[in-house]
Simulated assay, not measured.
Amino acid sequence: MSENFVETVSAPQKTAWSKASVIIIGPAHPLRGGLASYDERLAKAFMDKGNDAAIYTFSYQYPSFLFPGTTQYSTEPAPENISIHVKINSVNPFNWINVGNELRKLRPDIIVVRYWLPFMGPCLGTILRRVKKNRHTKIICIADNIFPHEKRPGDKAFTNYFLKPIDGFITMSEKVLADLHQFAKGKPAKFVPHPLYDNFGEKISKEEAREKLNINLNDKVILFFGFIRKYKGLDILLNAMKLLKQNPSTQNIKLLIAGEFYEDEKNYQELLNDPLIKNNLILHTEFISDSMVKYYLCAADCVIQPYRNATQSGVTPLAYHFEIPMIVTNVGGLPSLVPDKKVGLIAEPNAESIAEKVKEYFDLGEEFFLSHLREEKKKYSWEVMVKTIIELLK
């Protein structure tokens, strides 16, 4: 085990609610991905306000049938000055009881637990039931999803089991808040937009980013970023590229695809190899490390999210942070986060509408959106998230 991971924690000093001891339960280093980055940034936000904060993460997170990627583990160094406890085994009930008992005795003032997948319901629900026996710790859930993107038997039962010990909820989209009300009536819940991912470095020039990625500075580039899964609609976007190619004013637009396949790549091969658009595709279909994120965002003229369905997206706060306008589809919580013709454009989830909005975006130009985007991004602070969690407990 790396020296970066703390296996035991001394009981934190108990203070007033404005200076609380906080445990975050969810993915964190050495695990990789957006959930891990979020939890690490949230811990920092609590500490910036003078709270004691640590993370309990997974020693075993997913069985292989739930993880189609190449690896669950990061090659990046552990974040500095954050206590990360690699403790939780998602499939071992004896582990759940042991971790729950440990946290019960530790008596943190607050536990913030992430919920994104019903599979985690039995594990997290059991841990939290043990914690509640101390009659002190308050538990807030940040619910990424209530209904999963890919449904499986047992989803409803697992979610119901998880929700019972929770004292209050934060959702990052209004759709998830509405879904939550079907399960957890009478418990306090608030919608807080996903804070900015400001832990991937500062914005760099388009020239520097494109030089790093070997992309021509004069190209018009739209970016599809993140894991490739069916609900994210990459196939719809590729069909939109075929329509753009047939229009003389848009035929030279390039699509940069940056992210690892989380389903069979064969489902996309025919579109990716279509001779009409093949030369307009820039393929970086591997996991994008944290240190490389800024290059992909800053190389783009526009970020595009052609999703079939969505609650919220971690790509949106990334685009806000790096001040890149967006085209998103009119599904789930995406339109409420991207005001139309201010921060970006709203398309319907079909190839014709997406192609039309890509053309409109370049007709309007990047400068049309930037002042609105910079003003809108002020809403998405980590301080608001921490403040809302504390207010829920009062």
Rank of each mutant, 00 (worst) to 15 (best):
M1C: 02
E3G: 14
T15S: 12
A20L: 07
V22W: 09
I25Y: 07
A28N: 12
L31W: 08
G33M: 04
Y38S: 07
K49H: 13
K49Q: 14
A54S: 09
Y60V: 00
Y62T: 14
P68S: 12
T70G: 07
Q72I: 08
T75S: 14
T75H: 14
P79H: 08
I84S: 07
H85V: 12
H85S: 12
F94S: 13
R104F: 00
L106P: 01
P108K: 04
V112P: 10
L124R: 05
I127C: 10
K132N: 02
I140V: 15
E150M: 13
P153S: 02
D155R: 00
K156W: 03
A157L: 06
A157R: 07
N160F: 03
F162T: 10
L163A: 00
G168Q: 07
F169G: 05
E174R: 15
L180Y: 03
H181R: 10
K187W: 08
F191N: 09
P193Y: 05
H194C: 03
Y197S: 10
N199C: 07
F200K: 04
K206P: 12
A209E: 00
A209M: 04
R210K: 03
G226K: 01
F227D: 07
R229H: 08
R229P: 04
Y231G: 11
G233Q: 05
I236L: 15
N239L: 15
A240Q: 13
L243I: 15
L244F: 03
N247E: 15
I253L: 11
L255K: 13
L256C: 06
I257V: 10
G259W: 07
F261M: 02
F261L: 04
Y262I: 01
E265I: 13
N267G: 04
Y268L: 09
L276I: 15
I277Q: 01
L281A: 01
H284Q: 13
I288M: 15
Y296K: 08
D301C: 03
V303M: 05
P306I: 00
Y307A: 10
A310P: 10
A310M: 10
Q312F: 05
S313W: 09
V315N: 10
L318V: 14
Y320Q: 03
H321D: 09
T329M: 08
P335Q: 03
S336D: 03
A355I: 06
K357F: 05
E360W: 07
Y361I: 11
L370P: 01
K377L: 09
K378C: 04
K378H: 11
Y380F: 14
I390V: 12
E391W: 11
K394N: 12
